[in-house]
Write a protein that binds this DNA or RNA. Structure first.
Length: 638
RNA sequence: GGACACGUGGUGUAACUUGGAUAGCACGGCGGCUUGCGGAGCCGUAGGUUGCGGGUUCAAAUCCCGUCGUGUCCGCCA
């Protein structure tokens, strides 16, 4: 039997429910409804009050018209005396109207340690998503520039969410949408003479620099009309413009993917706007909506000649004619061109398998993880992409409004909520500018690219690693400083709740003593070294009954409880789409471990050596599993 | 004008979905101890009217109403 914090809560809940059923059958008529209340009443109290606690007696007190203290005492003494009581429970006692439960340290530790040491990297996996497919779209950056730090946050979130969903047994498809027919690419095409070639620079950077120039010139020369012409011709997928811009875009996306690879971020499939147009996905979607009478063609008023859709919550008072128009959204303009919303609707209908459209796919790029990233394309073969149960979009908070609109319309069409928008806040770097360089990808604001951020961080970590007091010959300093730099950046980006803003601070990200990626890596490396010195780093450890008996109510058992909470944490991170929950878990485990080896000698102290070595091994595994979910690599030495 | 997000000690934040015991953690501050299974660590300590005001409740950081502040968004654009 797998026994972890989820199971224990469930068993405590059952015991409470059965006791309440016996003693309060007259006061509670609907125990099924009450069982949810029991479920929600359970929490983790401070350690001196036990390992689990229920406040259910306060609710009972009202119904039974007795004091909560009396009820708690009655229930807890019956549970405590129950001969059928689960053997991993050592004590149940009431206090101030709460019912508190203590675990049997030896028995619970045995369950947890044996489970993690045998299941290894599978420990903590949940089955809640089993049999369901989810498409996660990120970061969908326009191909006219390199990734900047905002795109990086998007990609790191998308990547981590993908890992978290996989850890919950979902089938995950990592998808990237490439808008090669957008305004920005039309502008690139207009000014393609400005793109220098034969340069050693990455192509996305080259385009980004050229784009700034081109954009300026367009404004100066008032060339907006030309751009519109180009845009129109690009829509015809057989035009020379369309072919050329696809070529430029592919080259640029391949350059952007070098950035992705350096951060360990991979995709399964890229879907191109030009393929969506060629496959007439939009028309299929519009026909579908028309058939279902969800859209209508406007014949008069402000939107004469447009195909529109009602946006019911768009206006609270749709009483007058004018306000009624406010509550409508245009899908097809009077000139016949589709809006962004229409395209997005169509795309999501494909994602969720509502309309039939089978793209062809070909190989786009082989990724360093050994997996091929595929791309939609004119030639190629049909493959099994799309058709998911849930679509998750990682999109910045600035697009909250259109995303809400999309979700609302979709809910109306399908009758259920299958689109999720993971919104995230802005990123800024403390100190602002990058020394000796002019970044200018977003207007006039100086900013880091994902590449320059990593390069700068690597310089710093290399300095730290090589400046160590003792000269290092046991590690590849370049490799380690690369890993530490990545850990510093990723942890800093992911430890913050998605909707909050990130202010990136170099020294905090690198702080080896607290709340940072490198700190967690450091704890892993120390665990490794302890095991190495114990001489059992490569093999399994055998723990005997007598070892488990030596567990105390100190730091050792705190670690056991934290490890027992792993699956619960993995599920919570998935339900709430928050990698920050994983980061917090890793941070807490690192802290507890740091306390543990400070106070409980592992190698000296013969009597405890076996048990504590086992705990260190479990901590190492737990750190590894959870760091993996936020895409942080561990190092045996650093 | 409307919509959404955020507001918790000096700083960064947790707990808010599902109301429960003394608002948890880290950094920084102050005092003491210690030289390590690896860059210091450990122990102690100070620091909060959870933006403000009301309401519901035996119980509110949490729910409801109002209000203030900050940010973002509101086109036949993408």
């Amino acid at each position: 039997m797998l026994l972890n914090s989820i199971e224990i809560k469930r068993k405590f809940e059952e015991a409470l429910a059965s006791e309440i059923r016996k003693s309060f059958s007259e006061t509670i008529t609907d125990l099924n409804a009450f069982s949810e209340e029991i479920h929600n009443s359970i929490s983790t109290p401070r350690p001196e009050q036990g390992d689990l606690s229920s406040s259910i007696c306060f609710a009972l007190a009202k119904l039974a018209k007795k004091s909560p203290t009396a009820i708690a005492h009655e229930i807890s003494s019956k549970l405590e005396a129950d001969p059928e009581k689960e053997d991993f429970i050592s004590r149940i006692k009431d206090e101030n109207g709460y019912i508190n439960l203590w675990l049997d340290e030896a028995k619970y530790s045995k369950h947890v340690l044996e489970a993690i040491l045998s299941e290894k990297e599978k420990y903590g996996i949940s089955r809640i998503g089993s049999g369901r497919k989810v498409i996660i779209e990120f970061p969908s950056v326009n191909p006219n520039k390199p990734w900047h730090i905002g795109h990086l946050r998007n990609a790191l979130l998308g990547d981590s969410i993908s890992r978290i969903f996989e850890a919950n047994s979902y089938t995950v498809e990592r998808e990237d949408y490439i808008d090669d027919l957008g305004l920005q690419m039309a502008e690139i095409l207009w000014g393609r003479d400005k793109i220098s070639d034969g340069n050693a620079k990455k192509y996305d950077t080259l385009l980004g620099e050229a784009y700034v120039e081109i954009n300026k010139e367009i404004t100066e020369k008032h060339a907006e009309k030309d751009i519109n012409e180009i845009l129109k011709r690009m829509e015809d997928t057989s035009s020379s413009e369309s072919v050329e811009i696809r070529k430029i875009s592919e080259k640029s996306v391949k350059a952007q993917y070098l950035t992705a690879f350096s951060y360990g971020i991979y995709h399964d499939v890229l879907i191109w706007e030009s393929d969506i147009v060629r496959e007439k996905l939009l028309k299929r979607a519009m026909d579908f909506l028309d058939e279902k009478k969800i859209t209508q063609k406007c014949t008069e008023g402000k939107y004469a000649g447009c195909v529109i859709i009602a946006d019911k919550e768009g206006s609270k008072h749709a009483s007058t004619e004018e306000e009624d128009e406010e509550s409508r959204k245009v899908l097809i303009r009077s000139n016949g061109v589709a809006t962004y919303l229409a395209k997005d609707l169509a795309f999501h209908m494909w994602k969720l398998g509502i309309i039939d459209c089978s793209f062809n796919y070909s190989e786009f790029i082989v990724q360093p993880n050994g997996k091929e990233a595929y791309t939609s394309s004119e030639k190629g073969k049909p493959m099994n992409f799309g058709n998911a149960d849930i679509a998750i979009n990682i999109i910045g908070a600035a697009q909250q409004h259109p995303q809400n609109l999309l979700k609302r319309i979709f809910e109306e069409v399908t009758g259920e909520q299958r689109i999720l928008h993971l919104s995230y806040g802005e990123v800024s770097v403390k100190g602002g500018t990058l020394s000796g360089r002019k970044g200018g990808w977003i207007g006039t604001t100086k900013s880091y690219t994902a590449d320059s951020l990593l390069a700068e961080m690597e310089k710093m970590t290399f300095g730290i690693v090589s400046d160590a007091k003792k000269p290092r010959t046991d590690i590849d300093m370049k490799e380690v400083s690369h890993k530490v730099a990545l850990a510093a950046i990723k942890f800093e980006f992911l430890k913050t709740d998605p909707e909050k803003k990130v202010l990136f601070e170099w020294d905090k990200a690198l702080d080896l003593n607290s709340n940072s990626g490198p700190y967690c890596m450091y704890m892993y490396a120390r665990a490794s070294r302890i095991l190495e010195r114990a001489g059992i780093d490569k093999e399994d450890i055998l723990l005997a009954e007598k070892d488990f008996k030596k567990i105390t109510r100190g730091e050792d058992f705190t670690i056991i409880k934290q490890i027992g909470r792993m699956q619960e944490t993995v599920e919570k991170a998935c339900r709430e789409y928050k990698p920050s929950i994983i980061a917090a878990y890793v941070m807490e485990l690192s802290l507890i471990f740091s306390n543990f080896y400070e106070k409980m000698p592992v190698l000296s102290g013969e009597e405890y050596r076996n048990l504590r070595t086992g705990i260190v091994m479990a901590v190492k595994q737990a750190l590894f599993n959870m760091l993996c979910l936020i895409n942080i690599d561990t190092a045996e030495r650093m």
